[in-house]
Design a protein around this nucleic acid. Sequence first.
DNA 1: TAATATTTGCAACATTGTTGCAATAAATAT
DNA 2: ATATTTATTGCAACAATGTTGCAAATATTA
Lengths: 133, 133
Amino acid sequence: MTELLKSKKISETPFRKEVLAIFRNYTNAIPLSTVEKELKEYNRITLYRTIKIFIEKGIIHEITISGEESNYAICHEECSTAAHHHQHIHFKCSSCKKIFCVEVDQFPSIILPNYKIKQLEIQATGLCQKCNV
Amino acid sequence: MTELLKSKKISETPFRKEVLAIFRNYTNAIPLSTVEKELKEYNRITLYRTIKIFIEKGIIHEITISGEESNYAICHEECSTAAHHHQHIHFKCSSCKKIFCVEVDQFPSIILPNYKIKQLEIQATGLCQKCNV
DNA sequence: TAATATTTGCAACATTGTTGCAATAAATAT
DNA sequence: ATATTTATTGCAACAATGTTGCAAATATTA
Ligand SMILES: [Mn+2]
Ligand SMILES: [Mn+2]
Ligand SMILES: [Zn+2]
Ligand SMILES: [Zn+2]
């Protein structure tokens, strides 16, 4: 299962495997601080570089929400090295604060008179299943 | 026209008027670095605090795009002190790199089986009118 | 197993944002 | 208009976040 690193053509080091495993253990997106908590021991700089290369290689993607720490999640769709083009939305639960990547069968489209839209990115806020009892 | 500061119940100081005027002179969203360039002379800390209070009071709103400097734009809709609820999308032109707040007559809605969506935030990428010749 | 390419960790630095506090300026009440 | 009250500004000092060059260590390839 750590074939992923090889398939993305980056060296398979213990540290990278460890970080990848952390992302895989979560069903939601997580910030750097969570990755840090999960790692027993780590070098701050190496972690930054690991996150960076994971994003570049299409292993994880970044989710930014105003005024909050960036979150990161595994790319389930096949992401190119060049760009992340996800047809899913980012859902933030206002109760448990977790951020989920959610597939949606009918991704909306917008037409604007004076703009040529190539891509949409959608963030939703609300309640996740667990919190919406 | 500087009534805005009074109406938002914050003191009307020369510096705040100056910063507000800068935002009003742009039709697109701008990052802090642009505000800084426009100001002849300024105190870094005061500027941070000004941006912060402008956001809190619903005068401007923040637009965050992955891996980029935050951008800020005047709130044209009436924003409460509590939260910014904009029914417009944020459009980033991949050519001129400008970010625009764009009204859309039919704001899309999404229904997800396991989530209760309260609010959507939409970012679009593509070409603006000027760049789409 | 040796040669080569890549990653890691250190030191040092850059950038970005925050806080306490006294001086200053703005708003309000006389 | 002037005094009183309240809020803002700027300084110093700090905290958090992210970056770079480079030598040692490790992974990949031959
Ligand atoms: Mn996602
Ligand atoms: Mn906007
Ligand atoms: Zn939840
Ligand atoms: Zn453009």
